[in-house]
């Protein structure tokens, strides 16, 4: 077929995308998917850890011992009244005798408790989460009200739970960071391999007098677009999973360990940009490196 030179438009200097590019996009998309999923896992783990800490730190339990001829009910009521006035306490509620007995049932059985057993009375205290009352302040208030009681602010457990929660949070962040690094490394390798497959194009442009920056720019743009597309596919798929988990599991997520929030899907937003940047940078450096080797340098 003949061509009218006056109507000729220059064709693209790089060949159109082919199966090798599809493989690159697939590999990078899978890695972006795993990275975003790991990031969402880290967010959920952090939220779970925060939840456990808050659940424990927001409450205290007071064990009341009646004095002299004081009844258990009266002692518990006096303790609740004294505690209600302490700054940082939002609610102090004396548990009824039956409620205290019910707490012992898992250990002693339902019928093993004699009716006249002096079961210690408990006061359940809810604390202000912003400025919780300290155990010392509550003990002081009980002493002033002449109530014989001991305060358990769960600090013994809280420390362990917080340590475990912190560990879970950092482990999740570490896994997410490792997966992201692996994704970046594989993106670099895949980009180099895809570029090496086009060595001949690069060589012809180079020996025809094209400047290294111009050649590198061609590959940089091509691979940036492919990386961004892969990030969009992979990150988008991970975001869809997060949204599905939130939809299926409600605010608690699909399990108490992974309470996913709607906003967690936003973790996918940086994926196209990051993948595009890494691929572009890898393509630029690989192209310049190849060009250097072609000059015998």
């Amino acid at each position: 077929m003949s061509l009218d030179p006056q109507r000729w438009k220059p064709g693209p200097l790089l060949p159109a995308a082919d199966a090798r590019d599809g493989a690159l996009v697939f590999v990078v998309a899978v890695l972006c998917f795993l990275s975003v999923l790991a990031a969402i896992g880290a967010l959920a783990a952090g939220r779970a850890a925060e939840g456990w800490s808050q659940a424990l730190s927001g409450t205290a339990t007071v064990l009341v011992r009646p004095r002299g001829d004081q009844t258990s009910d009266a002692a518990a009521a006096a303790a609740a009244e004294a505690l209600a006035g302490v700054r940082g306490v939002t609610l102090a509620r004396a548990l009824a005798g039956a409620e205290a007995t019910a707490l012992l049932e898992p250990w002693l059985g339902k019928d093993a408790l004699p009716p006249d057993l002096p079961v210690p009375r408990l006061v359940a205290v809810d604390l202000d989460r912003a400025r919780p009352a300290t155990a010392d302040a509550m003990t002081q208030a009980l002493r002033q009200a002449q109530v014989d009681a001991s305060v358990d602010d769960h600090s013994l457990w809280l420390e362990d739970v917080q340590r475990a929660a912190g560990l879970a949070r950092w482990a999740a962040v570490g896994v997410a960071a490792l997966v992201a690094l692996a994704a970046a490394a594989v993106t670099v390798l895949a980009t180099r391999a895809a570029l090496a497959a086009r060595r001949e194009v690069l060589e012809v442009l180079h020996l025809s007098g094209a400047r290294p920056g111009m050649i590198a720019g061609l590959f940089e743009r091509r691979f940036a677009l492919m990386g961004a597309a892969a990030g969009l596919f992979g990150g988008g798929a991970a975001a869809m999973i997060a949204l599905s988990a939130r939809l299926a599991g409600g605010s608690g997520g699909i399990s108490p360990v992974t309470p996913v929030a709607w906003a967690d899907a936003l973790a996918a937003v940086p994926a196209p940009l990051a993948a595009g940047l890494v691929a572009a940078l890898a393509a630029r450096l690989a192209a310049l490196n190849l060009l250097r080797s072609m000059s015998g340098a």
Binding site: L3, P10, G11, L14, P15, A16, V201, V204, L205, M214
Partner: peptide, 19 residues
């Protein structure tokens, strides 16, 4: 070493385009 994805005209014009 022709560029297989480019037409005869594009291949011939390549050095001028690069310049």
């Amino acid at each position: 070493r022709l560029l297989e994805h480019l037409s005869v005209f594009d291949n011939a014009a390549l050095p001028l385009r690069i310049a």
